[in-house]
Amino acid sequence: MHAYFTEEGSVEAVNARMGQNVSPRLATVMASLVKHLHAFAKEVELTQAEWDYGIDFLTRTGQICSGERQEFILLSDTLGLSMLVDAINNRRPTGATENTVFGPFHVEDAPIREHGATISLDGKGESCLFEGRVTDLDGQPIEGATVDVWSDNADGFYDVQQPGIQPKWNNRGRFVTGPDGRYSFVGIKPVSYPIPDDGPVGQMLGHLGRHPYRPAHMHYLVTAPGFQKIVTHTFVGEDPYLESDTVFGVKQTLVAPFEHISGATEWRSPFDFVMVPDATEDHRLADSIEHAAS
Rank of each mutant, 00 (worst) to 15 (best):
Y220G: 00
D278P: 03
T234K: 00
D287F: 09
Y220M: 02
V255H: 07
F227C: 12
S269P: 05
D282Q: 14
S288H: 13
L242G: 07
H217N: 01
A216I: 02
P215F: 05
M275L: 15
D239I: 01
A292H: 15
A286D: 10
V274T: 11
F235C: 08
M218Q: 15
Q228S: 12
K251C: 10
E243R: 15
E290I: 08
R268W: 05
H291T: 10
G237T: 03
A216R: 07
A279H: 14
A293Q: 14
T265K: 09
E290T: 13
V236R: 08
E259S: 04
V231T: 14
S288P: 06
D272C: 02
A256K: 00
D245C: 03
V276H: 01
S262M: 04
A292G: 03
T265P: 05
S288K: 09
E266C: 01
P240V: 02
K229V: 14
V250H: 05
E281K: 07
P257F: 10
F273Q: 05
H219L: 00
S288M: 13
G249A: 06
F271I: 03
Y220K: 03
F273I: 04
V231W: 07
H233F: 04
V274Y: 01
F271N: 01
A292W: 14
A292K: 11
P270N: 01
A292E: 10
P277S: 13
I230M: 12
F273T: 01
P257T: 09
W267K: 05
I230Q: 08
A216N: 01
D278N: 15
S262A: 13
D272Q: 05
A216F: 00
F271V: 03
L242R: 02
L254Y: 05
I230R: 03
G237Y: 04
S269T: 08
A286L: 14
H260M: 11
L285T: 10
R284G: 03
A279F: 13
P277G: 11
H283Q: 14
S244C: 09
P257Q: 10
V274S: 04
S244G: 00
V222R: 05
V247H: 06
E290N: 09
H283A: 14
V247K: 04
A292N: 08
V231Q: 13
D272N: 13
I261K: 12
L285Y: 07
S244M: 04
M218T: 09
T234Y: 10
T223Y: 04
A224E: 14
P215H: 00
P215R: 04
T234S: 11
D245P: 04
E266Q: 15
S262V: 06
F235Q: 04
I261H: 08
P270F: 07
L254K: 10
V250N: 03
H283W: 14
S269F: 04
S288E: 14
G237P: 06
V250S: 10
T234E: 01
T246I: 15
T265I: 10
E290D: 06
L254I: 08
A264V: 01
V274I: 07
H217C: 07
A224I: 02
V247Q: 12
Q228Y: 00
A286R: 13
R284N: 12
A286W: 13
H291P: 03
T280Y: 12
T253N: 13
F235A: 04
Y241P: 06
P225L: 07
H233P: 02
P215C: 02
D282L: 15
S288V: 11
H283C: 07
F271P: 03
V231Y: 07
P225N: 06
P240D: 10
T265R: 01
